[in-house]
Design a protein around this nucleic acid. Structure first.
Length: 415
RNA sequence: CGGGGCGUGGUGUAACGGCUAACAUGCCUGUUUUGGGUACAGGUGACUCCCGGUUCGAAUCCGGGCGCCCCGACCA
């Protein structure tokens, strides 16, 4: 893509109504735009990142035999009354139709839809296990939206629901999901600072598990066991905090942001909707359920919080909007164009800063702000060596690479 | 939901109750410059969030509303 055609622009100044690092950098770089408190438009560069994250998550969900569906965000009140959550779910968006006076919810989660949905198809033990997932916009009536994309009123979430014949099967599946989640966090570049965390179970069970990523902007406080590489959420740490695995009390307190959670719902919802199956002996039994969520927009923001620096965004290759940022400076435009065409024809994701009016300094600053992992500068100076300057975002050093070796080197880099 | 702060060109800010609402940035024209947000000149751009009140006079004071941020509470 040519940068001169991109409808978004970078901005020098930070919006005064945003304080969080993720919102400031993403808005300045033109990845997102705020529409309302806690509600953002995702612009082309941000959309590309989101799609990359989506791809990583989808691949893992499919490996868990998850079948992708899309359920409605608009949901009937009756289903929420059936689970007794119409009155009690405090961030539920509830509203009345202007014309019919019927009441609706905007889905913050989808147990109320997915459970009756699967009931139409599950009748026998032969129909189990099953897993479905979706990647969809969710709504929560937050009393206070905050911290950019970290806590919004509208956000994009992947939710997976699993259906099992018994608790053992659920437990085994739950472990598989845990591994998938760990691969997801590693793939988006925050694996080394994301901890499997023991947390309270909320509405459904005694405990649940979260994945928490260490960042200053985190809303949660967790206690890390360095030996086991797991953590405990503050909410379940009472007087004597200890690691549930090795029982040590040497725990390190840290701020973290919750980037995913997994719950064993068991029969909490199958009871409400009478979701039963017939077992091998002809007996009726309740289906056992699990649910597993990852907020994509929040995950994106968490990566920014964790990796962004003074100069701007820093993307891992796996989710960067582009793999390569070609910057043509004075005297290098013609060659830059050639290299761009060549890399494009190799099917590589390339952003080419072909803007003519901008000064060199402005282009280099913008490249840092946009955060694309590999920057190739082509200018009069590099062309004296018949080369391009190769620089990795986030690293100080750069090197000259001969123009005829670039494709080779890019392919080598991508492994 | 409790507390605090704030709404002024696209953006960031300034302006004692008193001249034509100022500065920077952006944008447009031209010249210039070209490896870390070049320089100069000219130009464009604001019913000062909305409604009402006080006053000879309101961006400024008062009341109400709407919106935004931060702290806390809450949080699948």
């Amino acid at each position: 893509m040519r940068q001169s055609k991109l409808f978004t622009k970078t901005s020098h100044s930070v919006p005064k109504d945003e304080e969080s690092k993720n919102a400031q950098l993403l808005i300045r770089a033109g990845y997102i735009q705020k529409e309302l408190a806690g509600v953002y438009s995702i612009l082309p560069l941000g959309f590309r990142v989101l799609k990359k994250i989506e791809g990583i998550i989808r691949k893992e969900m499919e490996s868990l035999d998850g079948q992708e569906i899309l359920m409605p965000a608009l949901q009937p009140k009756t289903n929420w009354e059936q689970t007794n959550r119409w009155e009690t779910y405090d961030t539920l968006f509830r509203f009345e139709s202007f014309y019919t006076k019927s009441e609706y919810a905007l889905g913050p989660t989808h147990e109320e839809i997915v459970t009756p949905l699967l009931k139409r198809f599950i009748a026998s033990y032969k129909d189990l296990p099953r897993a479905v997932f979706q990647i969809q916009t969710k709504f929560r009536d937050e009393k206070r939206a905050k911290a950019g994309l970290l806590r919004g009123r509208e956000f994009i979430m992947k939710d997976l629901y699993s259906f099992h014949a018994n608790e053992d099967d659920l437990a085994a599946y739950y472990e598989k999901v845990r591994s998938s989640y760990e691969r997801i966090y590693a793939a988006v570049g925050i694996g080394n600072r994301t901890y499997f965390t023991f947390a309270s179970g909320g509405t459904f069970s005694k405990y649940s598990h979260e994945f928490q990523t260490l960042t200053e902007a985190g809303e949660d406080t967790i206690f890390i066991c360095e030996t086991c590489k797991i953590a405990i959420n503050e909410e379940i740490v009472k007087e004597q905090p200890e690691c549930p695995q090795c029982n040590t009390t040497k725990l390190k307190e840290e701020k973290a942001i919750e980037v995913g959670n997994i719950f064993q719902l068991k029969t909490r919802f199958s009871e409400c909707f009478d979701l039963q199956y017939t077992d091998e002996k002809g007996a009726k039994k309740l289906v056992v359920m699990g649910c597993y969520g990852i907020g994509l927009t929040r995950l994106l923001a968490a990566v920014v919080e964790a990796l962004g620096d003074e100069q701007g965004l820093v993307w891992p290759r796996s989710i960067s909007p582009f793999q390569i940022h070609i910057v043509g400076l004075q005297g290098g435009d013609e060659k830059a164009q050639e290299v761009y065409d060549k890399l494009q024809s190799q099917g590589l994701d390339v952003l080419y800063d072909d803007r003519r009016g901008e000064s060199s300094g402005a282009k280099l600053k913008d490249a840092d702000l946009l955060g694309i992992p590999l920057r190739l500068v082509i200018s009069e100076r590099t062309l004296k060596e018949n080369a391009a300057e190769w620089k990795t975002r986030g690293q100080k050093e750069s090197a000259l690479v001969p123009l005829d070796k670039i494709i080779e080197k890019v392919i080598e880099m991508q492994g």
